[in-house]
């Protein structure tokens, strides 16, 4: 499933957060949105998920050929993983993962035995097979983030969007989880877009990196291309500074 973003702009009051953004992410690709804080990268991700909406007028977001620009988040069902996990603390890990299945309309909702099966498969995929009965507050940060990922995957989303997925974790867990995510992505091949301010993370993980600055796309390319041939001073400075 591919994501196509055509000439999207976004204002918050008088501040112009995103200026005429166009971007295409191919099916199965893993793309990083990299930029300093205030560059608009999280806003762009939230617009793709339907948590924010772009300015009226021109511009559109297309998921594999069908336009979703003004669809609400609940109709769009992009898999979204938040920096601070946003798990439902009053539910067990298994109930968290099954949430998206339970709220499906009756016609398409899997039976409860099938739900349990899906949950167990996902728990195994995130390497927490024994943790279904625990509550999120009893897990470590890295474990919580994997649960959040499993919860997003349970509903078979068209795309996976990760907002600073490792931002709240300490350095060691970060590295481990980063490697794990790359392998995981290679095994499921889901179109994935993730936001980060850490260029090591972007360069190590992503097939392609999009550098955002001041609400504009500064450069798009493979990690090597960006390092070798920065197109402007902003990109050169940003990569240098980090």
């Amino acid at each position: 499933m591919s994501i196509k973003i055509d000439h999207i702009s976004k204002d918050f009051g008088k501040t112009n957060v995103l200026k005429d953004i166009s971007l295409q992410v191919e099916t199965g690709e893993l793309v990083a949105l990299l930029g300093p804080s205030g560059s608009g990268k999280t806003t762009l991700l939230r617009i793709i998920a339907g948590l924010e909406f772009p300015n009226e007028g021109e511009g559109a977001i297309t998921f594999h050929g069908s336009e979703v620009t003004f669809q609400s988040a609940y109709a769009r069902k992009a898999g979204f993983v938040f920096q601070h996990y946003a798990l439902f603390n009053h539910m067990t890990v298994a109930d968290n993962i099954a949430f998206g299945l339970k709220v499906m309309p009756r016609r398409s909702r899997p039976s409860s035995t099938r739900q349990k099966q899906i949950v167990q498969e996902l728990l195994e995929k995130i390497q927490l097979p024994e943790y279904g009965r625990r509550f999120p507050t009893q897990l470590s940060g890295g474990q919580r983030q994997r649960v959040a990922l499993a919860r997003a995957l349970a509903v078979n989303p068209q795309v996976l969007l990760l907002d600073e997925p490792f931002g709240a974790l300490d350095a060691k867990v970060r590295k481990e989880l980063r490697r794990w995510l790359r392998e995981f992505h290679d095994s499921i091949k889901l179109t994935t877009l993730f936001v980060t301010h850490d260029q090591d993370e972007a360069f190590e993980l992503a097939d392609r990196v999009v550098i955002l600055g001041d609400g504009e796309i500064q450069q798009i390319g493979k990690p090597d291309e960006l390092r070798d041939k920065p197109v402007n001073e902003f990109v050169a400075d940003f990569i240098e500074v980090e």
Binding site: L51, F53, T69, Q71, S72, A75
Partner: peptide
């Protein structure tokens, strides 16, 4: 209908978009 939303292109496009935004684009 929302899941299969496909907006028309052409003359009515802009008007249809504004209507769509007002009707559909509710924050989560």
């Amino acid at each position: 209908g929302i899941a299969q939303l496909n907006l028309p292109s052409g003359e009515d496009a802009t008007r249809a978009r504004i209507i769509a935004r007002n009707q559909l684009a509710r924050r989560a």
